[in-house]
Amino acid sequence: MINSPYIRKPASVQGVMLAVLTALIPAIIVYASQIAAVVLVNLAIATIAALAGEALVLKLRGRPLAPALSDLSAVVTAWLLALCFPPILPWWATVLGVLIAIIAVKHLYGGLGQNPFNPAMVAYCAMIVAFPALMSQWPAAGQLDFATQLGLVLGGARELDAITSATALDTIKTGLRTAGATVQSIMSQGGNFGLVSGRGWEWLAPAYALGGLYLLARGIITWHMPAAFLGTLAAISAAFWLTDPAHYASPLFHLASGGAMLGAFFIVTDPVSGATTPRGKLIFAACIALVAYIIRSFGAFPEGVAFAVLLLNICVPLIDMNTQPRVFGHRGDKAR
């Protein structure tokens, strides 16, 4: 017997995931056209690996395949990872990363909705810790032709010193260790900088933001997390930049570099592993931005969003528990 309510809004998990995938399309277009077209190949590899991994675990767990495969959540994880990884990462590394995300992080905790950590970010961190050399080889935008990129992805020579470059964040970070170097001197000498951040890469940021706005408009995500994340990142980087512009990059640089925009709209907003209460979302996203900035500026890694997300994932129960919204009627009789 079915109980009330007997009517339902035509919403589905599949629809939510599809919207996220749609929102990623502008960024994929920019990525493929401005930086490395091989990202399309990576997306395909990651998608296949994710679906295959998901199917394998479901089979082992004795669960039906169709509902879990068709909810597209594995595809979202796969796409996010493919966009986070360096585009010339060998195919087996992409597959390994995706499998870590799907099998170890998602299914070992019970599958969709049960994982306390963001699968894509755990996989990203695991890969950067396990293969630091591979994970820090980024092609300079537009310097490799598609065949070379494809060759690198599908295997082959990895003597890359000549053709790879550090990311903008990495260049600034390592450059500042040289005595006398300032942010300005580093940005003016390196050929890899554009207007505000890495050449080519800086155009990804607005593309991600565009997708994020689409998600906001569709009501898939709420304004809390992106606003708190970007606001905090801008505020704290501005604070340091204003005190010492020679040794701290500008807020604009921070917002346009690395995983800031991707994180703000697609990573931090992951509902499963993130905070859920309105106030909790603000605290969660703001703390991620704070930790990410600290890692970027003072830590051992050039980019800190992934580690920050994981650190805050651990705090989610604490945040949620202490930010429960006021329940209807529990204010007393204070009529406005």
Partner: peptide, 28 residues
């Protein structure tokens, strides 16, 4: 009144919390 489609795991999306007139956290 179509029969409800198959149930899927909760993804904590919070749509229920936004719809709740009693300001509860239904998924919790």
């Amino acid at each position: 009144f179509p029969p409800p489609p198959p149930e899927l795991p909760c993804i904590r999306c919070g749509a229920c919390a936004r719809a709740c007139p009693a300001d509860l956290q239904p998924f919790e």
